[in-house]
Simulated scan of single mutants.
Amino acid sequence: MNIYSFEGYIFDLDGTLLDSMGLWNDIYVKVLGEFNIKAPKDYLFNVNHMSLDDGAEYTVKTFHLENVVKKDDIVDMWNAMSKEEYENTVQLKPGARGFLQSLKNRGKLLGVATALSDELFVPCLKRLGISELFSATTSIDEVSRGKEFPDIYLRECKKMGTKPQNTVVFEDSLTGIKSASVGGFKTVGVYDPSAAEQAEEIKNRADLYISSFSEMLYEK
């Protein structure tokens, strides 16, 4: 697959462009600790690939916290802990900046489809100096279903003014790769340690798989 042959390029953020999944693991562990609960490994894996609202609902139900805390309170705790990190600390993954710029230099349309809220990702992209590279962005809050459905990618594609068959989606999660494929997009799986256990299946499902964006800088 010639990676530069597409008109549009849609990027997930956490675990794909941003080196931020470790941050979320720490936050999930700390919040559960407030209720004297130790976070199981499967919980961290599952909640990492949900929207904040879905993840909070999953948390409340999984640990039977219905009479202890509300879903919205869980979301508020997560947002409060992560806001400062996105504003000041979270960095791009290796090679990401160079690859984005190489696409922009070729006149490609770039977009974002993320489970993060605008409040978290907009300041982060501005601080990193890449917000102007994207012609459009879409948060999971703008669609009624999560990333297990292609809605977010289709909405972002429409904003960008491209067609799915001329657009490629970059994702670190198996869920995202599957749903983007269902939506008619070509897909690129991006390695992240948080999804290491699914790396082989992601490789098999995606049209292309990369360990780092640095690999893309050598493509012609």
Score class of each variant (00 low, 15 high):
L110M: 01
D172P: 02
A115F: 00
K104M: 14
L109Y: 11
V169S: 11
L100M: 02
G95D: 02
T59Q: 03
T114K: 06
A115K: 00
K104G: 03
F134R: 13
T162C: 10
E119R: 07
E148N: 15
E132A: 14
V69E: 08
P150K: 10
D141N: 12
T175H: 01
F63R: 06
G55H: 00
K70H: 13
K93W: 07
T59S: 13
S181G: 14
V69K: 11
D73H: 01
S135Q: 15
I140W: 05
E66F: 02
F121C: 09
K108A: 07
G161E: 10
R145N: 15
F121I: 07
M160V: 13
A180W: 06
V122P: 12
L128P: 12
K61H: 11
T167P: 07
I152N: 09
S135V: 09
T62Q: 13
T62H: 10
K93E: 05
E119S: 15
F121G: 02
V75I: 15
T137F: 10
M77R: 15
I74W: 00
G146A: 13
T137K: 15
T137I: 03
E148K: 13
A80T: 14
S139R: 09
T138V: 15
I140F: 08
L154C: 11
Q101M: 07
I152Y: 07
K178W: 09
Y86E: 10
S131I: 15
Q101T: 14
L92M: 03
V68K: 15
N105W: 01
R106C: 10
L92I: 11
T162R: 02
Y86A: 00
M77T: 08
G176H: 05
G98Y: 08
N88K: 10
A113L: 04
F121Q: 02
F134W: 00
P164C: 04
D172E: 11
G146R: 04
H64M: 08
V69A: 00
K159Q: 07
G176E: 11
